[in-house]
Design a binder for these strands. Structure first.
Lengths: 334, 334
DNA sequence: TGCAATCATGGTATCGATACCACCATCTGA
DNA sequence: TCAGATGGTGGTATCGATACCATGATTGCA
């Protein structure tokens, strides 16, 4: 691979087509502005040379990078993947590309990645991470681009937020269990310092339980190499050990709920008669062909598409928070 | 958001620090090449102005974009996510960023996306998609960059391939079932025209079964909105209807196997006594806290890291195929 | 002490495209 | 017939950084 071939330039194409470089540029960017005959000549030369327009140079001279930076918490949970699909498809219609990085749920990593994204002079920055260090926040506020925070509705967004209320979702689930006659309801989550979303769902649970019943909250310390189902299984065991008469278990995510569900099967506990289980996210396995899990569904693709629309229209009032809501899907597990 | 703030330039920083622009460039790129005092002055000015180096301009003048393009089949299956993490972490050490697009398993989409990636003049292109149109292949072969194909070992790679043999994996799983006494073994997959991987696993199954037993292959037509578990559940039902005495079912992926597993539970069929189930991918739910599924594990992160190493070292012989293998994880489902 | 080597720094050309302005040919309408 | 509008095309400056070469200051060693 060391044969250092060179990239063809617009000048090469222009020479071959017998026109000026600017005409080549127009033929490729705004084909309507050149005559049919020149357009054909240019296209022929482009095809023969295998030319691909150099966006790097284009970005510099036009001062438009046609790039949108995205910083997600992780790629390994499917929740963000649908958002990215919606976002990326929406942006593609406007000729924008996604430059992607993952923070692994660490605000320090996020703070380190933001400058690397800004270095590409993106036209907007999309974040699905929920917490920023003071430095990062300052950098975002000074930067000359729109910042969109997704999957959450922070009190004080940097610019614009598109998401839903995790707290309301936590309440809605708790309310559902109360409405179906449960009173001794536990909550299991992870004790991750920077996972504000899980904590917000917990707050929702607390809001709803107030005065009705006692709290049964279990926050598990993260362990290296452990997966969602591991925590879920462990969570169910510990909850039933500490509060044996628990009737329902709200899990902070579907993967935890799935682990709890499997653990219940193994222990011979009937779901939902002995214990009801709920999750969050409506992942594939939660469907009726799978575990039939009661859960909260977020339309991740819609969040992404909405963000793309906002970016393309440029219509962003500072401080806007767009609530796309959620839906509670009741299935056999409750 | 319409307050059109301007980006700070290196010239602004240089003026503020009282040095030349080139010195600012050196202070940021190769801090060892400037004196302590100027370095401090520059860093102070950078901090005060909130300057972020413009990589767009840098790419043009240095003829190094510091970008690697990646084209994955989908972001919505966790298998590629770990590869992307390994790749992105590895590249970050060399100061390279990932520009990502998803083909949605469609070679036409891939062909359309390749030029948009090449437009950024990436230093390498990574593909996890397995099939290219003739046009796309021609473009890749002419382009002046290394092309890495991941997750597979094509007969004739464009340049370099890093992956494993899906065919061998299909054989290994079939062999495992035979070795544990099963003879009437079925295979269920999806009838997706462009999913060469699934077909390769099926070939492996056929290789191994030859002469020993009859083939029981079910390829389900894709339906809009259907999920892996849906196909798995349907697959188990149809297989048992057509071949009631089937002893083991090899599913083309874990999500299918999970659906089959749940369907077996619902139908009261004991796994593995009445029917053994196997998957592919070792996703979270396959672990012992979850479904305890016998499956094939691929070290996706290792594939990504290896690709990153190759890119950073530049040490790529044309035609190289690197086989990172797989491991068969036996769990309770077989 | 003197000369070469090294270090720190700056000036200027350059990367490959696009913006802006200028130009020419053709067309329109009085 | 000619002024003015229009459509198609090209020349040149420019975007913001880095490469290359040149310069002056400092150091090392005989």
């Amino acid at each position: 691979m060391s044969e250092a071939r060179k990239w063809v330039t617009m000048g090469d194409v222009a020479a071959r087509a017998g026109v000026g470089t600017i005409t080549v540029s127009r033929a490729l960017r705004t084909p309507g502005k050149v005559s049919q005959t020149t357009l054909a000549k240019v296209q022929k030369a482009v095809a023969e040379l295998g030319y691909v327009l150099d966006e790097t140079a284009g970005a510099l001279s036009s001062q438009r990078s046609r790039i949108v930076g995205a910083l997600v918490s992780t790629l390994e949970e499917s929740v963000f993947a649908t958002t990215l699909r919606g976002l990326s498809e929406g942006l593609a219609e406007g000729g924008l590309q996604l430059l992607l990085s993952a923070t692994q749920y660490d605000p320090e990593t996020e703070a380190a990645l933001i400058p690397t994204l800004l270095g590409r002079r993106p036209e907007a920055l999309v974040l699905t991470s929920d917490r920023h260090t003071p430095d990062a926040r300052a950098l975002l506020e000074r930067a000359a681009l729109p910042v969109l925070e997704l999957w959450d509705l922070p009190e004080r967004p940097v610019h614009v937020a598109v998401g839903f209320s995790n707290r309301a979702a936590g309440s809605a689930m708790t309310r559902h269990l109360i409405d179906t006659g449960r009173r001794r309801i536990a909550f299991v989550g992870l004790d991750r310092a920077h996972d504000s979303r899980g904590h917000l769902r917990l707050e929702g649970y607390r809001d709803c339980l107030r005065d009705l019943s006692d709290e049964r909250v279990l926050l598990l310390p993260p362990r290296r190499g452990a997966t969602g189902p591991d925590y879920g299984a462990q969570g169910l065991r510990e909850v039933l050990r500490r509060w044996p008469d628990t009737q329902a278990l709200i899990c902070v995510s579907d993967t935890l709920a799935a682990g709890a569900w499997c653990e219940a099967m193994r222990a011979g506990l009937s779901v939902p008669d002995r214990i009801a289980l709920t999750g969050f996210g409506d992942f594939d396995m939660a469907g009726s062909s799978g575990l039939a899990l009661t859960t909260i569904r977020i339309d991740g693709a819609a969040i992404g598409r909405r963000a793309a629309e906002l970016i393309l229209s440029g219509d962003m009032e500072r401080g806007t928070r767009i609530d796309l809501g959620f839906s509670l899907i009741r299935r056999a597990s409750s």
